[in-house]
Amino acid sequence: MTLLAAVLLSVACKLVPGHLRAQYEAEWSAECEAIAMSDGVWSSLRYAGRLVLGAPRTGYVLRTNNRPVFFDVLLMSVTLAVPAMFFVAHSAITGQLLVAFAYSWLCIGLLVVASSAWSAESGLFGGKISASGLIMVLIASVVITSLNLLTDTHNPALDGPIRVLPGSVAAQIGVLLVMLSAWLGPQRVEVARLGLSLMTLGLVIWAAIGVLNTVLVETWGERIFHGVSVPSALAVASGCWLIRREGPALITPKPSQEVVLVS
């Protein structure tokens, strides 16, 4: 095993609970050695790298006594819902009741997605509740964008020297595709993956524009709005990318394809 693989393994093992560390250290280093001998050093390094990337989740799930592996979605939804609640309050205070209502609807949709992810027994996008939450999120975000474009409502999260429209539209198309993949059935894994890619791209664009707006705006009030949006957008973008990487495992396979029973 190379020194780099050993360092990666050491990092990965530090992230798992202490009482299991010795077992995982022995298991993973033996696996790395065996892979290096059979598949080569690069495969061994790749495996060690994947272990490091997966170790936070391994540690989290083991520490929290086998909580569902869907916690990424819960964290993503809550990450988006927190600034959305902030925007509900702002819209209500400034008397923009329709915007406030749309943001509330967005929050509820996100919490529905989160709750369905937390209790999901099937694939992530295979449940009616999860898809209903996505529909609510989509309707709310389209309403918020439309109100911003077509009326004179002032929405500090969307307004600014540079409009976040390209990012928000890409993210909305992404949500639409993810929702469609749920409708079309589990065989449409590629649609879901494309949707997640678009959501990631849209949110990264949003965050980049948000950073520029934070610099360019003149008042601290507006700066706070953009400052709140940027970390949320980045966190959710990384979550979307992680879920996209999981791919087929998160989408319910068709019963006829998934069960191979032994007699």
């Binding site: 994947r50 989740r57 391994t58």
Partner: peptide, 16 residues
């Protein structure tokens, strides 16, 4: 490693 290759699962999912 064999299961990761065969199923496409990630280590962060498989070991827990």
């Amino acid at each position: 490693f064999e299961i990761l290759k065969a199923t496409g699962l990630k280590p962060g999912t498989l070991y827990p």
